[in-house]
Design a protein around this nucleic acid. Sequence first.
DNA 1: CAGCTATTTCTGTTTTTACTGAAACAACAG
DNA 2: CTGTTGTTTCAGTAAAAACAGAAATAGCTG
Lengths: 180, 180
Amino acid sequence: MAITDIPEVEAFILHWGEMGSQWGVNRSVSQIHAYLYLSDRPVHAEEISTVLGLARSNVSNGLKELQGYDIIRRTHVSGDRRDHYIAETDLWEMLMRIVQHRKKREVDPTIALLAQLAEQLDGREDVPLHIRQRIGRMHEFMGTLSGWYEEVQRLPKSTLVALMKLGGKVARFIPGKSKD
Amino acid sequence: MAITDIPEVEAFILHWGEMGSQWGVNRSVSQIHAYLYLSDRPVHAEEISTVLGLARSNVSNGLKELQGYDIIRRTHVSGDRRDHYIAETDLWEMLMRIVQHRKKREVDPTIALLAQLAEQLDGREDVPLHIRQRIGRMHEFMGTLSGWYEEVQRLPKSTLVALMKLGGKVARFIPGKSKD
DNA sequence: CAGCTATTTCTGTTTTTACTGAAACAACAG
DNA sequence: CTGTTGTTTCAGTAAAAACAGAAATAGCTG
């Protein structure tokens, strides 16, 4: 009996697939991820293909993408020539890696483009001031966010968890602020 | 001369459209948003349609969606019967509203589902323990993140900006931690 | 190195999503 | 109340993305 026979497991996998597709991740990819997340042993591609009803090739591509995100990894099972896969189950790790990956893929190139545009527009009197300003501000804004994330991302997980628990109370440490 | 004749403006709009589509936002919608973001006066739908080369109906739907995100708003120009639109230009505001909207639309329902699944699985000896644990942990994790966001989101913008500037140094305030 | 077995790549098909243009609807002006 | 202008809805079309199955490749194994 496959774990997908459990209705709650199936619901989880289906929902995970839907959610992924809303964030620009192919439905099959997220489903494969969900299945691996709920498995406590290395799983081979054929099994995923059967259990989720996807073509073997589709699974192959999905696994490749998930490895690109670095949230699953390949392992070997002795006596079996096939590749097996297991998912990262530490959710902090998982989240950080997903964010890291998408930042590198989408945010960083955007900042690079904005930097270029801002430079080209600098001092260009033939371009309306408000346009130069808005592209400039967008550049600065995304750069600030990105820099902040790079710093925070380096903090030990335990610190991050502690900061989370603090919630809005972190405001206390800002001079002049005292929310709550 | 439309601002889209400026190559940098066109590049910005096209890139914004691409980026949007990677995050599950329809390309036309993001392009419309980019155009409004770079305009310093109220713009009517027909203009957007002409300038971006999109069908009038497509623009209409795009504007509706952007209003759903609450990052553009309708205004009126005296002497003109047409609806005009302007974009939020405060980037903090913009980001917060986008996040709020997507959280409500995608994250909150996910947490609700996880809560339901976790409850149904509670104590169910016929379901492998690791499955119950992993769904439970996912629920807890997303709930924690969500709660944290709700708190932080309520802080005044100035506090948030100050916290951002602090970067990794916030860790100082965590007992026992001292990064940097 | 010959024969399996597993994996990936490729091409055509299906499905989904985005988009257009026309028609219906709404709001206003005279 | 009627013609005009503007907006939205709807149904069909086009484009894009996802997917399946076959073919090609890679990598073991004896």
